[in-house]
Design a binder for these strands. Sequence first.
DNA 1: TTGTAGGCGTTATCAT
DNA 2: ATGATAACGCCTACAA
Lengths: 339, 339
Amino acid sequence: MVSIKEVARLAGVSDKTVSRVVNREPNVRADTFTRVQRVIAETGYVPNMAARHMRSSRSNTMGIITDYISTTPYSGNIVRGIQDWAAANGRTVLLANTNGHLDKELESWKMFMAHRIEGALYVTMYHRIASPERGSVTLPSMLINCRSAKEESEASIEPDDFQGSRDLTRFVLARGHRRIGYLRLNPKLLGAEERHTAFRATVREAGLGESDIDVRLGMEGPIGSERNHVYREARSLLEKANRPSVLMCGNDEMALQAYLAALGMGLQIPQDVSIVGFDDFQPVSLALKPELTTAALPYYDLGYRGAERLDSTIAGKPLASRTLTLDCPLVVRSSCAPV
Amino acid sequence: MVSIKEVARLAGVSDKTVSRVVNREPNVRADTFTRVQRVIAETGYVPNMAARHMRSSRSNTMGIITDYISTTPYSGNIVRGIQDWAAANGRTVLLANTNGHLDKELESWKMFMAHRIEGALYVTMYHRIASPERGSVTLPSMLINCRSAKEESEASIEPDDFQGSRDLTRFVLARGHRRIGYLRLNPKLLGAEERHTAFRATVREAGLGESDIDVRLGMEGPIGSERNHVYREARSLLEKANRPSVLMCGNDEMALQAYLAALGMGLQIPQDVSIVGFDDFQPVSLALKPELTTAALPYYDLGYRGAERLDSTIAGKPLASRTLTLDCPLVVRSSCAPV
DNA sequence: TTGTAGGCGTTATCAT
DNA sequence: ATGATAACGCCTACAA
């Protein structure tokens, strides 16, 4: 590979001048600049990051540590958001998966230190409480899609499950639904609590009582090996004498099962029963017919803005608030009809 | 960060001796070794990769360049496989997404060169023909889940769609099915052709004729904005007087739509009609009730073994064959019953 | 078995 | 406006 010295030799200048050109520093005559640029183009010179890192003792690198993220398809967009931010800002990103193993997590931190990363993004697949296990390493960091078990400590960026669920519920109510079946997410997930609370608060606000809603537990047990009651509970809700006119589901995959249950009973969607999901997991929400009305998790933005926030922290700027929440916008499709 | 010199000072040896300990080189007395190890542990010293890279002029890094991979959930497991191999072998991995844009692809190659990667993995979301656009860069590389447009050139590792489809078809035939509806993938995808060809060859082998099978096009048009006929074609197949006893679908999401069509017509799965998919895309294949019988794309292994193969190439070992194909194992669940 | 000298490609500093 | 020199942390080559 051609080095800065080689470029300097060919351009008939010193290596420092080439450095100035490459880094757009001032005090270079226009014609010198042009000449150096031409040699750079001709030789295909690209600065060596490792050398730059060594000299400046800044790696310009951040590490992403994920739990099951690559095992499961859901939140790959978080990583994409981070990478897009990094590419747009000349930063390098290092990715490590723990697959949920603590020893791999420690190993990953070691790898990160070897690369002298300047900050870390801790990304979880589900919106949940997390306890990053970084050994003795202390580094600027940002939790994405999770929050710390220890109240005081870490900065985070999270989806606003509450707002998403509230808006979805308001939408359902605005369509005239007054008998609502609700299938809860696994209570282990943060979203479960927030979505459910928002749902209850919103229907109460609208004047509905306990008898108007019927809340069932869709899933429970440890993540990854949960027991799934969705299909059965959906059927049970729909078999009631006074069956709900709409089923609100903890997420889109639960909505899928609600579809199967409803269709299996000969009900048409949305004529006989409306269904809404949550997440906007498109391989499901768009494959369903009719397409699913849902609330979208802002995965890409969580990543993009999380990286941005971490970078501010690295630069020493104080964060306006420890936790930032991003809206889950309503996505209206055709699975929820007026009563 | 503590450096090798600092460790050397604290241990009362030269930096070279520390280097020997760190790299497990011979010719270090046991007690020296122990003493140095203790200082390393106490100080938390971790070798600086950038410095190591500079000195040895080996970056130990490979780059992954993906098309839409992070945009879509399908093949994240390829990346996980690569990373696991890299972690197990002390290699660093750099990830870049093009999102299908050529300019981002060139930009990514530039970033890779800046990090002096030793080889590149070109990963596509769909099994397809690809033309990596690496500008003037020439580097050991491996195509994963795709093959080169130019026959001669590049090494690749791909799923064996033919074998997967053949085994799936044999399984269906073994269950006694003799009237088969087949919903084709978008012909733009490599898998579409191979799966379809294997299907036809296998039913012919079993003595079935053209009148026993009914092949419909499920999707067509440019990837990402295709026209989707699956639901309609599935209904059409099931409305035939002499309807197929099984629907074989190009992939699992098409199978999902076949489920919706069948259930919507009051048919039970698998009692009235069997359905099989392809891919084993678990958020769908496991969410469907009954769970879906399908063939699994070996994404993780594609990544793991692809990285391994690239590493051999970097080390200068010749590949046994330019293209390696990996089996798509049959996954039997309960959506396909005996006739 | 251990240590010394030197240089990888850059950029900071200071000189010109 | 440009250049000379040193230094970042590590490892190769060689010396002791």
